[in-house]
Each structure stands twice: as structure tokens, then as C-alpha cells.
Amino acid sequence: MKWTELSIYTTNEAVEPISNILHEAGSGGVVIEDSQDLKKEKKGSFGEIYEWDTDSFSEEGVRLKAYLPVNSFLGETISEIKQAITNLISYDIDIGLNKITLTEVNEEDWATAWKKYYKPVKVSERITITPTWEEYNKESANEIVIELDPGMAFGTGTHPTTVLSIQALERHIRKGNQVMDVGCGSGVLSIASILLGADHVLALDLDDVAVQTTKANMKVNHLVNEITVKQNNLLEGITAQVEVIVANILAEIILQFEKDAFQLLKPDGIFITSGIIQTKKEEVKEALINAGFAILEINEMEDWVSIIARKPR
């Protein structure tokens, strides 16, 4: 089978929404190449070592590589992708150069080559995320290792929005907590919640691919009894009360259910939000306060923001 590689030149701000557009269009994977990474220290803040193929990076901005099967609908799919990306401008998202190039690749080349982009990464004080195909040995007894297979749709949990979410969970999860993961994607935040001491997680996502990917990663990490996965539109129809809700979604989506989150949290409960671009920070903060929350923390990484809020007692 042949695949078409789409190279999309854009901005860091647009990475998350464009990745979602590509996923919904049936992409067989997304690779993110950020020119800013070349300017950073090779050694990360948590000790991870990066190996960059400098020849593959664009000179400025971010390049997303996505993979679509070559079929009779390819032209129509690409047109829809281009239109959806252009429509992001209406959400005040800077899409930058927005240049798209196409290259045809063989399946055997894609199936092996994309894995070189994923290595074990320490994303917080205690948590290391490693792809399932990589061997990794714990560096200390209290280190938590999450094995993740991104499958055909998701990254390995090292995007800044995910890292911010995991670091917030590490600070706020308490032993025995009940958690909801809204927009669970690969399931990495659900898995992290359990390994950090939560008793049970209800993982929700509208996309069946996300549901199936979460189920697969639950099995890899031996957590099939601790996590319940459900295909669901945000918090519609959910009545359970929990101590923690985490949502690594775009700001525009968070603004659709912050009041529902407030209702479903127990008094003193924590709402962890991420996936927020800088230009949306104040809007989300104001919406959370208007819903009744008290803001505990605002954390930033690169161009991304995470806001942690508490429901008063």
C-alpha cells in the first residue's frame, strides 16, 4: 500500500488543532518537527537526551508530517484538510506560512521510519514515558514508567500540553481519587492518574479511534480494571462526582463544558485544563472564575498554558 506524506509548514500555536484536523481526516500518523528545538539544550530539564536529525527540520516555524493512504478520495481529503486549516484563522489561531507539500511513500518505509522519532522521555519528577518498542530500565525505585503505543493517530505523550497536564496530575492527585479524563486521546493522562494513586478513571472521547487506542494502552500498562473508557461528547449525560477532572483539549472546547465540570466535581475538587494557547489564556481563566472556580495555578511551556482550578468547599 502506498501513502502520501503531507508536509505542512505552520506555527507552534497551530500544531494541536492541525494535528486534530489531520487525525480526523484519517491520517496514518503525525510527526512534529519544530525548528525551535534545534536552539534548545540537547539535555532536557528532566534529564532526557534528544537526538535530532537536523537536516529534516524546516528553517523556521513548525513542520507537521502527516500520512494518508493513496486512494480515489485523496484529492478531496487534501482539499478538506486545507480548508479546515484555513478556517482556524476564525479562532484567532496563527497558522503561519501554511504551505503544504505532498510526497508519496511506501508503507514499509513509513511503518519503520516513523518510530525513530519516539524515545523514552522523562516528563516530570516521577514519570517517564517510553514507546512500547523501546527497552527502558528505571533509574530509581519511585520512578513511574508509562508504556505507550501511539498507534496510527497519537504522539507519545511528550507534547507540552500533555507534559503540563502530567505535571499537574503529579502535584494534585491524591491516593484513592476518582478522576475523569475528558478527551482522553491515547489514554496517557488516564494511565498517569492511576499510577499516581487514583482509584479509578473514567476516560471520555468522542472519537472511536481514541477510545480504541486508550483501551490498547490500558492493556499494555495492565490497567484494564482501573480505567473505564467511553465514547462520549465531553461531559454530556455524565452524573458521577469525582475529585479530579483533567482536560487536555483546545481552549475553545474547554469553554463548552467548564460549568459541567464544576457541577461534577466534589467540593474542593481540582479541574486541570491544558491545550490552551497564550492568546486564549485570559478568556479561559475568566470563564473558569465565572463558573465558580478559584484559580490555583497557571503554568506555561513554550506557547502553551495549563490552568489548574479548584471548586470551593
Rank of each mutant, 00 (worst) to 15 (best):
E104F: 09
F73P: 04
S140H: 06
E135W: 10
W133Y: 12
L296H: 04
Q256F: 12
L148S: 06
G176N: 06
P160Q: 09
Y117C: 06
N12Q: 13
I173D: 05
V242Q: 00
E143T: 01
K2S: 14
R310N: 01
I277N: 10
P69Y: 02
M301D: 15
L235Y: 09
D149T: 04
S90Q: 11
K115P: 09
V121W: 00
A14G: 02
W110T: 05
E108W: 06
T86I: 15
D94L: 05
A240R: 14
G183I: 12
Q167S: 09
V70F: 02
K99V: 13
I227C: 03
A287P: 00
P17D: 09
G61I: 02
V244L: 00
M218I: 06
V179Y: 01
K42H: 12
I81R: 07
K219S: 14
E143D: 05
T214P: 03
T132A: 07
I227E: 01
I78M: 10
W110S: 06
N106A: 12
E76V: 09
G183N: 07
Y50K: 12
L206K: 14
A168V: 08
S45T: 14
E252P: 01
L169K: 06
Q212C: 08
A66G: 15
T54R: 11
K259Q: 00
I289Y: 13
I249Q: 10
M1N: 11
S306Q: 08
I49A: 10
S72G: 09
I249N: 11
W3T: 07
